[in-house]
Design a protein around this nucleic acid. Sequence first.
DNA 1: GCTTGACTTAGAGTTCACTCGAAGGAGTAG
DNA 2: CTACTCCTTCGAGTGAACTCTAAGTCAAGC
Lengths: 131, 131
Amino acid sequence: MYSISEVSRLTDTSAHTIRYYEKEGLLFPDRTASGVRQYDDKHIDWLRFVLRLRATHMPIDQIRQYVALFRASSDDHDTTLDRLALLEQHQTLVRAQLAELQLTEQMITEKISSYHRLHPSIPGKQPSQSR
Amino acid sequence: MYSISEVSRLTDTSAHTIRYYEKEGLLFPDRTASGVRQYDDKHIDWLRFVLRLRATHMPIDQIRQYVALFRASSDDHDTTLDRLALLEQHQTLVRAQLAELQLTEQMITEKISSYHRLHPSIPGKQPSQSR
DNA sequence: GCTTGACTTAGAGTTCACTCGAAGGAGTAG
DNA sequence: CTACTCCTTCGAGTGAACTCTAAGTCAAGC
C-alpha cells in the first residue's frame, strides 16, 4: 500500500491534484482507521489511466460518469453498454486530435524547412545529415 | 475583402474570438475609413494557421511573440532565427502530444475490444466486417 | 430623414482544471 | 513529552482562453 505522497511521486502528480480527483469522484482509495488514504497497485493503474484520459482532453465530468457507471453496475443493472459508449465517444475525439496534430506537424515542418531554404546559413537542427 | 462576420463563417470562429485575437496581437486586419475591420485572403490564411497552433496548444502568448518578431523584422534586424526557435519548440510539443495520443488511442481501442470479448452480443461498431 | 442591422469598444463574467493556504490531527523518533 | 513530518478538510485563489454585455457608431435601403 502507498501513501498519497508515494502515489504523487510514482505518478508525477501533486498530492493536491490527487485529492482533487477524489473529490471529483474519479478515484476511491481505501482509508486507514484514522482516515489516511491508502492506495494499492490497482488504484495506481487506474490513476494512470485517468491521467491519460485527461492528457487527451477527456473532461473530468465524463471520467466521473464513467467511474459512476462502474460503481452503479450490478446483477440487475449492467452498465457495460454505457461505458462502451463513453469510451467510443472519447476514441472519436482522440482520433480527431490525432488528425489535427498530424496536419499541424506537417505545416510546421514545412515552414521550418522553408526558413532553411531562404536562409541556408542558419545553424541548429538541419535536416539530419546522418544516414 | 471580407467582413468580420464572413471571416467568422469561413473559419468557424466567433467574431468575438476574432476580435479577441486581434486585441492579443495575433491578427492585424485592415480598417475602412470608418474603422470597420476588413480581411483579405492572406489574413484568413494566417488566422487558419493561428487556429491550428491553438488547437495544438501553443499558448496565445507565444503566438503573439511569433507575430511580434515578424513585425519587428527589418533590414538591420533579422528575426528569422528567433521565429525558427519558436517553431521548433512548438514542433517538439506537437510531437510529444502525438506520442501521447497514439498510446492512449491504443489503450482505448484495447479496452473497447475487451468489452466486446466479454460481451460478444453488444451491438454498435463491431471491428469492421468490410474488406 | 429614419430605421435596421452589423459593426465598434472597454471591460466584466464564465468555465475548466487545477493550485494553494490555513488550521488542525495522528504517528513516530529521540 | 516534544518535535517533526505527513496527513486531513474546507474553501478561496489562479490563469488561460474565451464569452458576453452594454452602450454606442455607421452605412445602406426605403
